[in-house]
Simulated assay, not measured.
Amino acid sequence: MATLVHGFDWPDRLVVGTVGQPGSRTFYLQARTGKQMVSVALEKEQSAALAERIEEVLDELMVEDGNPFSVPALTPEGLVDNDPLEQPVEEQFRAGAMGLGWDPATAQIVIEAFPYVEIDADELAAEEIDVVELEPTEVMVVRIPVGTARAFAKRTREVVGAGRPICPLCRVPMDSDEHVCELPDGFR
């Protein structure tokens, strides 16, 4: 079966946002072009890693001789998007593997999200899995220009950081005002 590609070249909107309260939020990568909209569930760590890696790629491109791709050092004001996820949020799939690339021909960051695939460990040990079986049934591919990528990374870092506050002593997320530190032995 052919892989279904949810492709977004120069999307109208690309954001990471959440549904739920801090401590039980679900993160989504949401892309929209016109009426086509796809929401892919992510882990918080995937969201943070994606933003961090995009920033790294942009910073590397920016220091190339003369900044040939006009990569902005800061988020362009007109590209800031602080709006919530578009409703309804309907999960297309939960992301497992993700890819990040650079297309110099179009000067775009390319983000790929592949569905999470669960493989039974007993089945894996008992027999070899044919590589064809591991071909994804669908994939989300989004291509964005450098300014949009900078704004996307900034927003994503802010969304990830908007969760539960971290206890300054034990570094564990605090669920309430009644937080009890779980300090390691020797710290009291």
Rank of each mutant, 00 (worst) to 15 (best):
L29D: 05
T26D: 10
E60D: 15
E77P: 12
R53Q: 10
F27T: 05
T75S: 11
E128I: 05
V40D: 01
V15Y: 02
L58T: 04
P22M: 06
L124V: 07
M98S: 11
T18E: 02
V89M: 00
V131F: 11
L50E: 00
E112H: 15
E60S: 12
L50Q: 03
E43I: 07
L100Y: 06
S47M: 02
E60T: 12
L134P: 07
I129A: 10
D83Q: 15
N82F: 05
E45A: 15
I54Y: 02
V19S: 08
A95T: 01
E55A: 12
D120A: 07
N82R: 14
R53P: 01
L100V: 08
P84L: 02
G20C: 11
V40E: 05
P72K: 08
V80F: 13
D103Q: 08
E128T: 14
T33H: 04
R32L: 10
K35Q: 14
V57D: 06
E127C: 07
E55F: 04
P104F: 10
K35E: 14
E45V: 14
E135R: 08
Y28H: 03
G23W: 03
V80I: 15
L42T: 00
A95Q: 05
M98N: 07
E77H: 14
E55D: 15
V110N: 05
W102P: 01
I129M: 12
P76I: 07
M37T: 04
A113Q: 00
D83I: 08
G17A: 01
E86S: 08
L42D: 09
L42M: 04
A31G: 09
F27I: 01
A95D: 00
F69C: 09
A48L: 08
V132C: 05
V40M: 00
G17P: 00
M62E: 12
L61Q: 05
V110R: 07
G66A: 10
A95Y: 02
I119M: 13
A125V: 13
E112V: 12
A31V: 01
D81M: 07
T26V: 09
G78T: 03
V71Y: 02
D103T: 08
L74V: 12
V15K: 03
I129V: 15
D59P: 01
E127S: 13
V80N: 09
G96P: 02
V15F: 01
A113G: 05
L29E: 02
E45G: 10
P84N: 06
R94T: 14
L85P: 00
P76W: 06
Q21G: 00
V16H: 06
A107Q: 10
V131T: 10
W102G: 04
E118N: 09
A121E: 12
N67K: 09
G20T: 05
E127L: 09
Q87N: 10
E128R: 14
W102I: 11
E112A: 13
V16Y: 01
P72T: 04
G17S: 03
V16F: 01
S39V: 03
E123Y: 10
D103A: 09
V16C: 04
V38H: 03
A41R: 08
P115K: 04
V131I: 13
A48M: 04
Q108D: 08
G23T: 09
E43P: 00
A49Q: 03
E128F: 14
E90H: 00
A31I: 03
E118C: 06
E55C: 13
E128G: 15
L134Y: 07
I109L: 09
D81L: 03
V63C: 02
